[in-house]
């Protein structure tokens, strides 16, 4: 994953890019899928865990998302966005679907106490990258107004609808809609996201 990212930088999909890997996966290439797993599993799991809180459910969702990637790799369309965004959208939706079901919300608070797994030994370098990513995101989140930041946090990391977000924040619906949008736009500019 790092080798790919370092060597390629912001250029067209190379032989090791996630887009190319997905194309191979769509033809049943399990080795390519293994590389996809390496590139995305940590983010999928982390996001699911953030939304669901429950480690067991987070793992289930991660497994579901990855299998969904295997199943529908042929339906990924590079014209619509990056492979990473496609996978993370699948992951977020699935986590959010779960959290919005009553069953999950009852369970997750009870089971939230379980601890994370300790990192595997050969993942140290990935952690450096994650840490950098985290620092950058944290810095950029810090540049949002409080209302923007809280709205984005509640919607993305907790899976709230914008109505729930407005309710929790005691803010008008229209304001939350606008804050979600201009907050993300500010984040996009701060993070240098292009598409």
């Amino acid at each position: 994953m790092h080798a790919v990212a370092r060597d390629n930088g912001p250029v067209a999909p190379g032989p090791g890019s996630l887009e190319t890997l997905l194309e191979r996966v769509s033809r049943g290439d399990q080795q390519a899928f293994d590389s996809v797993y390496t590139a995305v599993a940590g983010s999928v799991l982390g996001l699911a865990h953030r939304v669901l809180r429950d480690p067991a459910q987070s793992e289930e969702v991660t497994q579901e998302v990855l299998i969904e990637v295997w199943r529908s790799a042929a339906r990924f369309d590079a014209g619509r966005g990056s492979a990473m965004a496609w996978i993370m959208t699948l992951a977020h939706r699935r986590a959010v679907d779960r959290v919005r079901s009553a069953q999950a919300s009852a369970d997750r608070e009870q089971r939230a106490a379980a601890r994370d797994h300790s990192p595997a030994f050969d993942e140290v370098s990935e952690q450096v990258e994650r840490r950098l990513e985290r620092e950058q995101v944290r810095r950029c989140l810090g540049q949002l107004t409080e209302l923007q930041r809280e709205s984005v946090n509640l919607a993305y990391y907790r899976g709230y609808t914008y109505r729930e977000t407005a309710d929790v924040l005691g803010t008008a619906l229209g304001t939350v809609k606008t804050r979600l949008r201009d907050g993300l736009i500010r984040l996009r500019d701060c993070l240098g996201v292009t598409s």
Binding site: L45, A91, D116, A120, E126, E133, R134, R138
Partner: peptide
């Protein structure tokens, strides 16, 4: 999402 990645 990257910012909250975990080691599986």
């Amino acid at each position: 999402a990257f910012a909250v990645a975990q080691v599986p």
